[in-house]
Design a protein around this nucleic acid. Structure first.
Lengths: 203, 203
DNA sequence: CATAGAATGTGACCGTAGTCACTGATGACC
DNA sequence: GGTCATCAGTGACTACGGTCACATTCTATG
């Protein structure tokens, strides 16, 4: 690695670390780019050489988190269990991982989401978000498919609709939990909802 | 109405109309407060006498829409029909109303949502949003309760969980539809998902 | 009609995200 | 080692949302 490359790498990392710390300490909105660059000992313009916007930082934090999450998930996915258990397990693993650091997650998730919405129709962030959802839904869909083959799930069910619905429930629980101040259990809430969808409401 | 009151009313309306038009024409982010006030023939400060922030305008647009929606809904709610049909009807009425003006809705909904997220933990916007959701869930819960009494719905179901789940599905469909460019049917999508939840996935 | 005081309007001003034309450091090549 | 093209660094500058002390307009009252 040349000197130039090393410096670049270091600066980027420095911005990343400092902004991460400041965001946690003071919140995203209350941390200015000036503060970050001042603490990093660089000029304001330099910040924008590395990250196109202040919000884009969150995008990278998010990516870092996801790396970890998907590794956890993939290590558990090949378990031999009924489809319903697999789905629950999948959700609970995610939930437990999230429950470890609600504050950070709230920051990453809500601000990141906000930025995607704000940046309008076609943006890299939105694209990435969409892909992430698809990956999520695919995993669920695979579980359900297995379930159909094993006769645990009605075979007249549209797998796309079903896995999307499960995803919707996951998302809803997540949002509810993120917005709640009380410490209601995210994984417990999810579990009840998955049961409901598997059983059905109707008599 | 005194002259003062009339002027106030007029100014407020003027801001409202002009900003609505500009938002539709150029989008929310691309419309500046300066533009709005210039076109309205008032000073910048005056704008903020009427609306605490630029985003708060969206809050009022949203309220205006909701007025109409809840009137439509209430006129249809007392119909005598199976619970499932009532839920579907409820959703479809909403969907059809929304489908009339996707662009405006997308603007109102996404930006409004964004602003709620952005404004952090405790804001009037968030409070109002939360109340709206509760109202929504209550209506669904009433339908389901009736369904239980009429034996159409399993009585071991937790009504809160069930109505929240239906709401989650509604919300998911709405978001999917708002983000899609293709003209997939919002009401059709919802209908399939309600069927799924009533029937259940499991064999 | 005169006047006081309240309601409303005003625009210079502030803080912050983001830009850009210029400067300085780096390394490939001779 | 000297030269020059390239790439990162810089900070004054712009744009925009939002504020505030002061100016203007309206109205209640004698």
């Amino acid at each position: 690695m040349s000197l130039r490359e090393k410096k670049k790498y270091d600066t980027r990392n420095r911005i990343f670390e400092i902004s991460g710390r400041l965001f946690k300490e003071k919140g995203f909105e209350n941390t200015t780019v000036d503060e970050i660059t001042k603490e990093a000992g660089i000029a304001k313009g330099t910040f924008f050489n590395y990250f196109p916007t202040k919000e884009s930082l969150l995008h990278y934090f998010q990516e870092q988190k996801e790396e970890v999450i998907f590794n956890i998930l993939e290590s558990q996915m090949s378990l031999n269990a009924p489809a319903k258990e697999k789905v629950k397990n999948f959700f609970i693993l995610l939930a437990e991982y999230y429950e470890k650091d609600k504050t950070l997650l709230r920051l990453l998730f809500l601000e990141h989401k906000r930025s995607i919405i704000a940046s309008g129709q076609r943006s890299a962030g939105k694209q990435h978000w969409h892909e992430r959802q698809q990956r999520f839904i695919c995993i669920l869909s695979d579980f359900l498919k297995e379930g159909v083959e094993k006769g645990e799930i009605k075979n007249r069910i549209d797998l796309k609709i079903a896995s999307e619905t499960l995803h919707a429930i996951y998302f809803h629980s997540l949002m509810k939990w993120l917005h709640s101040d009380t410490d209601c259990s995210f994984s417990g809430d999810l579990s009840a909802r998955v049961d409901l969808v598997f059983e059905g409401i109707g008599e």
